[in-house]
């Protein structure tokens, strides 16, 4: 059994420890935020935070995560009370199909936590691992600029 600390709460998980975190979040814990995009660490759809740093949850087995702080999209806010980054994305209507956006929000959250006013270049570099196929990038960048300074 493995204990995972997710959004501040402990969860006991019986699943095979080699299982990547993504599947445990989605199937065992019924959380939808992290998405399966490639399972290869190439697209960032599955991004969650580990001790405030972005990771590809599709690549990381739960066996190595005990004792560490995992934050998922669900930990940032709800539709009724979205977190500041979520709110900025909603305000900018920064989604088309939206499939990539949870991962984008998570990666942006990590950036804005450590940098209150990132430059455009810093945003681009930081967001580089995450793919969007709908071409929502320009809005995503606007949303991140809008959210700058609101994450504590």
């Amino acid at each position: 059994m493995i204990t995972l600390k997710i959004n501040g709460k402990d969860h006991q998980v019986e699943t095979d420890p080699i299982t990547p975190l993504l599947y445990v979040l989605r199937n065992d814990l019924k959380m939808n935020g992290a998405k399966f995009g490639c399972g290869l660490g190439q697209c960032g759809a599955c991004t969650v935070l580990l001790d405030d740093q972005p990771i590809f949850s599709c690549q990381i087995p739960i066996s190595i995560l005990e004792g560490r702080n995992i934050t998922t999209l669900e930990g940032l806010g709800t539709a009724a009370e979205p977190g500041p980054v979520q709110k900025a994305f909603i305000d900018e209507q920064a989604a088309q199909c939206g499939y990539c956006i949870p991962g984008m929000i998570m990666r942006a959250q990590a950036l804005l936590k450590q940098n209150k006013s990132p430059s455009d270049r810093q945003i681009r570099e930081w967001m580089q691992p995450n793919l969007c196929r709908c071409g929502t990038h320009a809005r995503i960048m606007r949303a991140i600029r809008r959210a700058a300074g609101t994450v504590s």
Binding site: M1, P17, I18, Q59, I60, P61, S63, I64
Partner: peptide
């Protein structure tokens, strides 16, 4: 037969590396 957290290199490999 590993049930809990990975304590060995082999267990880490099995989870983090072996899938590719």
């Amino acid at each position: 037969g590993q049930k809990g957290p990975a304590k060995t290199g082999e267990a880490i490999f099995a989870g983090a590396c072996a899938s590719c």
